[in-house]
């Protein structure tokens, strides 16, 4: 492999319900910074059906060019078809780097494509940098269950690929009307040759709690002791109109469902206020909440690492402190209601 033939930074632009998903816009921002440092172009690769107009959004968010695969065969995501577009386009245009959002689609696609391209893929990256001279991508991620960080390099293979966690990178401020080059690509895949069919898409009937959309999160961890203890988190959240979050320990203990989990193997959240109650603050948890606006930690252990990552901390027993907070909030919020009435 002659790695000198490879140039440019690409972002896989994921589309859901007719819109570009937020992480793809974040990656255009991150990709732009890498491309500028290296002195190369930033391109998007857009696959789907009826998606071509979305290229304009990609330009506004920093892409200089967008490769577009717009074909009915790509109406619904399937590994087999999307992967062929990525592989063909990569082999034709030889990018140095491809970034994917670490969503279920992005991870699925990148894993399959990396195998056929016989190149390196770093999963769930949280920090990206590039060596301006060599183009070597430094993709860092929490490793070993999130106890430490590891910087992963792919020296001899191209493209260098990484999936990147949502809500970590910053999107550029869009520049309305910013233009770029649309490169229309064609691929011939016959439906009868595709081995997988999507029979039906079922959206959750009860709108599942999306903790990544919450303004306030009250999150509980191992320190609450048991499922009953975790009830304190629900009580507090209900009082102040917050969404319930949880550490991995609390989820694995079965106190709450997985979609409430904050952290590396859960969801990354950026609420305006994050309460970490009885959560020690392992790296794998911190990567999921460290960009929150205001972080309040309550923990019995004064040495808990969460106190290094909070804005304000109380060292003490959650079962003493949280009920006091609930009482105070009830008083304040009820008074407010009376005043508004």
């Amino acid at each position: 492999m002659n790695i000198a033939e490879y140039s440019g930074v690409w972002v896989f632009i994921e589309v859901k319900d007719g819109k570009i998903v937020p992480v793809s816009l974040e990656l255009l921002g991150a990709g732009k910074r890498l491309a500028e440092k290296r002195g190369v172009e930033l391109s998007g690769i857009l696959v789907g059906y009826g998606v071509k107009p979305l290229a304009n959004t990609a330009f506004e968010y920093g892409a200089d060019a967008v490769y577009v695969y717009d074909d009915p065969i790509f109406k619904l995501y399937r590994t087999e078809t999307y992967m062929r577009a990525i592989i063909e386009c990569t082999n034709r245009h030889k990018p140095e780097i491809i970034l994917y959002g670490a969503t279920s689609t992005g991870k699925d696609l990148a894993s399959a494509a990396a195998t056929d391209l016989a190149t390196g893929l770093t999963a769930d990256t949280t920090i990206l940098d590039i060596d301006a001279d060599t183009g070597l991508l430094q993709a860092s991620r929490p490793a070993f269950g999130g106890n430490i960080m590891a910087t992963i390099l792919c020296k001899k293979h191209r493209p260098q690929m990484a999936t990147v966690r949502p809500k970590i990178m910053k999107a550029m401020n869009p520049i309305p009307g910013r233009k770029g080059e649309i490169i229309e690509e064609k691929i011939s895949i016959r439906e009868e040759d595709v081995r997988t069919k999507v029979l039906e898409i079922v959206k959750s009937a009860t709108k599942q709690v999306r903790i990544d959309e919450a303004d306030i999160i009250v999150a509980g961890g191992k320190g609450l002791g048991d499922a009953k203890g975790f009830g304190l988190i629900h009580d507090f959240a209900e009082t102040i109109g917050a969404t319930v979050g949880a550490s991995r320990d609390a989820v694995e203990a079965g106190w709450i469902e997985h979609h409430h989990q904050v952290g590396q193997t859960g969801v990354t959240v950026t609420p305006k206020i994050y309460f970490a109650i009885g959560i020690s603050g392992a790296i794998q948890h911190l990567v999921g909440m460290q960009n929150s606006g205001l972080i309040i930690a309550i923990n019995k252990d004064p040495d808990a690492p969460i106190f290094n990552s909070c804005h304000y901390g109380i060292v003490g027993d959650a079962f003493e402190i949280v009920p006091m907070l609930i009482e105070q909030f009830k008083r304040v919020l009820t008074a407010e209601e009376v005043k508004n009435a």
């Binding site: 016989a118 190149t119 390196g120 893929l121 770093t122 430094q138 490793a143 430490i148 960080m149 590891a150 910087t151 992963i152 390099l153 792919c154 020296k155 001899k156 293979h157 790296i283 460290q290 972080i295 930690a297 004064p302 690492p305 106190f307 290094n308 990552s309 909070c310 804005h311 304000y312 901390g313 109380i314 060292v315 003490g316 003493e320 402190i321 006091m324 907070l325 105070q328």
Partner: peptide
């Protein structure tokens, strides 16, 4: 293996926040 672990590191400890002091009542206030 195309990928190698270039380095392993503990992330720098963040500045840390303010730990509230005083009796519990006062901390809650």
């Amino acid at each position: 293996s195309p990928t190698i672990v270039g380095s392993v590191w503990a992330p720098p400890k963040p500045q840390g926040g303010e730990i509230l002091q005083g009796p519990v009542n006062s901390q809650v206030d």
